[in-house]
């Protein structure tokens, strides 16, 4: 029989764990190797006289980092970060706040599902970007229309995951709870909700990725006028129009980093909210 006492050895420092973790170092090495190959490929022409296809046209990492240092001193770059993040955050949060109850309601009530599922399924295949023209007409400001399409990007994924997750909860959990005297509210709050949490987090992680894709495209299309301008999408587009390719790459990597930070946050939240899944 296991004699382990619960929750005592978990407090080992996170940094300490990271440093002694083989997987972590494997990841670090993989990134370094990737950067080295990129550097060599990009420098090939200068060193050996002829251009490598594809990668030869790209600025080497050392140049990109130099440009990044420069760009990092301009407030405009950080403003772009801020603007895109706010749009993603607002759209994503709205999608969670509306999508989770909506999905749960469809899962538990067949009338609600009967009424709302068909229109939902018809709207779902329309890509968020197809909504751009319509949403510019609907919403008073460009800012709002960008947020709206980011909302759409995450909304469908979250609803589908919540609905699927709640519907696939094992009926035995519901029966067990009912036979122990649980009320309808107990069933919803203590069985359906925790039982759906894993799916909610899967939906959130996928939805967050889509949100970044959509916000970037929205910003490029909006053209960075006075209203709703800026953002990392416009930063890339503007750099491209200005012919500053190194900056384009800085913009691209910035998005990668932003997406990584967002999905790490969601993973962390999932970890906190679902302690029973930590053993995996």
């Amino acid at each position: 029989m296991a004699q382990a006492t619960p929750n005592t050895q978990k407090s080992k420092s996170r940094i300490g764990k990271l440093v002694s973790n083989v997987t972590f170092w494997r990841g670090v090495v993989a990134i370094l190797v990737f950067l080295a190959l990129w550097e060599i490929g990009a420098q090939w022409k200068g060193w050996f006289g002829y251009m490598m296809p594809f990668v030869g046209k790209v600025a080497p990492p050392t140049d990109v980092i130099a440009i990044w240092m420069e760009v990092g001193q301009q407030p405009g770059y950080w403003l772009s970060w801020w603007l895109s993040s706010v749009r993603v955050f607002v759209g994503f949060l709205a999608a969670m706040i509306i999508g989770i109850p909506f999905g749960l309601a469809m899962a538990v009530n067949k009338y609600f599902r009967g009424i709302f599922f068909p229109p939902f399924e018809i709207l779902r295949p329309i890509p968020p970007l197809a909504w751009v023209p319509a949403s510019i007409i609907f919403w008073p400001t460009t800012e709002m229309s960008i947020m709206f399409i980011t909302f759409l990007g995450a909304f469908y994924t979250i609803v589908i995951n919540v609905l699927g997750g709640a519907r696939s909860i094992d009926v035995q959990y519901l029966r067990a709870a009912q036979s122990m005297g649980a009320s309808q509210w107990d069933l919803f709050y203590k069985i359906i909700l925790p039982g759906t949490l894993p799916s909610i987090f899967v939906g959130a992680a996928v939805g967050m990725g889509i949100t970044w894709e959509v916000v970037l495209a929205g910003e490029m299309m909006s053209g960075g006028g006075q209203q709703g301008g800026g953002g990392l999408g416009f930063f890339i587009w503007g750099s491209y129009m200005g012919g500053v390719m190194d900056q384009v790459i800085v913009g691209m990597i910035s998005i990668g980093v932003a997406g990584y930070i967002s999905s790490s946050l969601i993973r962390y939240l999932g970890h906190v909210c679902m302690p029973w899944r930590r053993m995996f």
């Binding site: 619960p6 029966r175 709870a177 036979s179 009320s183 107990d186 029973w276």
Partner: peptide, 25 residues
Amino acid sequence: VVVFQNGALFPWKTLADNVAYGPIV
């Protein structure tokens, strides 16, 4: 009270919380 073939302890609750569930609800 029913005990099921496949087991139906709530995976999101500790054993003690599972046992405490009935009297609480």
